[in-house]
Design a protein around this nucleic acid. Sequence first.
DNA 1: AATGTGTTTGACTCAATAGTCATTTTTACG
DNA 2: CGTAAAAATGACTATTGAGTCAAACACATT
Lengths: 293, 293
Amino acid sequence: MDKRKAILEAAVELIAEKGYTHTSMQQIADSVGVSKGSLYTFFPSKEDLIISIYEHYQQLVFERAFVVGLDGNLPPYERFAKQFQVQFEGILEYKAYMKMHMRGESAQSSEKLEGMGHRMRGRLFSWLERNLIELYGEEIAPYKWDLMWMTQSIYTSYTGLMISSENELVPEQLGKHIVRQIDILAKDFLAGKSNPLLDDQMMRPFSVGMDREGAFTSFEKRENAWKSLYESIHQLDQSHYYLEVTDRISEESRKSNPDEIVMRGLFQLLKADDELNEKAQLLEMQLLPGSEH
Amino acid sequence: MDKRKAILEAAVELIAEKGYTHTSMQQIADSVGVSKGSLYTFFPSKEDLIISIYEHYQQLVFERAFVVGLDGNLPPYERFAKQFQVQFEGILEYKAYMKMHMRGESAQSSEKLEGMGHRMRGRLFSWLERNLIELYGEEIAPYKWDLMWMTQSIYTSYTGLMISSENELVPEQLGKHIVRQIDILAKDFLAGKSNPLLDDQMMRPFSVGMDREGAFTSFEKRENAWKSLYESIHQLDQSHYYLEVTDRISEESRKSNPDEIVMRGLFQLLKADDELNEKAQLLEMQLLPGSEH
DNA sequence: AATGTGTTTGACTCAATAGTCATTTTTACG
DNA sequence: CGTAAAAATGACTATTGAGTCAAACACATT
């Protein structure tokens, strides 16, 4: 069993409940069933531990949505909603992590953590921006900050609602709901009925570092692998069949415990086609790094 | 000089910047220029200190808006916007407190603090509800939770934007902006184009304790004093003149350092009318408790 | 000046806890 | 097996910081 992962999971659970400062290394150790000293063979310090937690979970939660974004099968509006849905599903799955994250209280603002939060926000905003432009074209630009800001706040607050209570918020409905509300607000802006309040100048602190590579390098690689695979498929004649297979891979990979055998099988189907072989193998290596015999 | 107040202010400043756990009593003492021991003559514990901070500032920030709500001169829509505006002005004035509040991290969830947060949220929601019903009538009821939730999240996130950056968000514009967005969403709901996602059942945790007396008793009294004064004025013939005076009182009282002499003078104007004398005196006692000779 | 009252002080206690490291236990392998 | 390397342990150290309290101080009253 992976002890490192066990420690991360126990720590998330405790920190979500009691907060960073009120969770001692001893408690974490007890909860995992190892000694305190052992923790320090995996993480050089408490702060490193929480940073590792962020590194571990962040991608798990956010990567999902970006992959859905690449699937050209869905029309933009539905795809946007689906992305929210997938995101919410992720949040539900990693409830404890999100709780911890939303508490906000962590080590005294280390460089590293701050940079991480920064990148996360940047990613969220650039993702929203991409979707807005896809949906409404360039003419949405003057209103994008207002829309993005409101979307982000609604998204965040529904996230909080989702993880705090036991109520039955369905990710699918929630995704549709949010996109619907954005749509209403966007159309109102486009009709010239409201004036925007925020502009580039004002939002500079949020736009620097937006959509920058370097962040999430491992994720970046994976995203590119997906992208190039999808592109190759679209050039094919029987794209429909391969898209279906690829979507199935995407679905499986989004699970918290993807079935490796199923994945390997699905990849085998793609590799049958000479045109796709290379790209598929590339993605497979990204998703299933272990044992390529 | 009021040492107690000085301590509260220094503490807010420090806690806003570094967080509750990373601000020691020693630092607070140093910042005020007294000894650590002295703090304990004013506040029995660190936790009591932060609770006192909340008690001190909460009303300052939130009371304002409710008073504006009583002025029947403004049409509902404009009044709603004005209330937001006034709220944002308050937030700007007590930036450090809001920063501290938004950090969220405080003593390990004491009963008292939790109850306070609960009451605050309850007040916010019941205030929103009142305004929604005033604007759209009872038919808004099925959609009220969705609207309130989105409004609350937009409001909160703009608050964060306001206090975090030095950008020039103008409270007046912001107030109008928010009401405008609510209006768009509300009209869409009323047109039957969107379906609500939240309902009473789901939102029970937020609705219990909504609009309950007992919370903010001192404020409650003051609110009633305002209410009955406004009512008396409306029954008068020259209501216009007295309304103007009363609005001026309201404006003055909203300042962080109301001019007592001005206030007394304004009240004198009201007390000149026999019909108003009693109510005016009542409110005067609420607003200017000291030295009634 | 003397006395008394209330305030202020800062050295001290005491608990919590991050991080260390010599010792013990487990594992790996010849 | 036996032995060496790796991993795990928990007693120990060092630090931080909340809260205490006897002594010093300030100030008023007589």
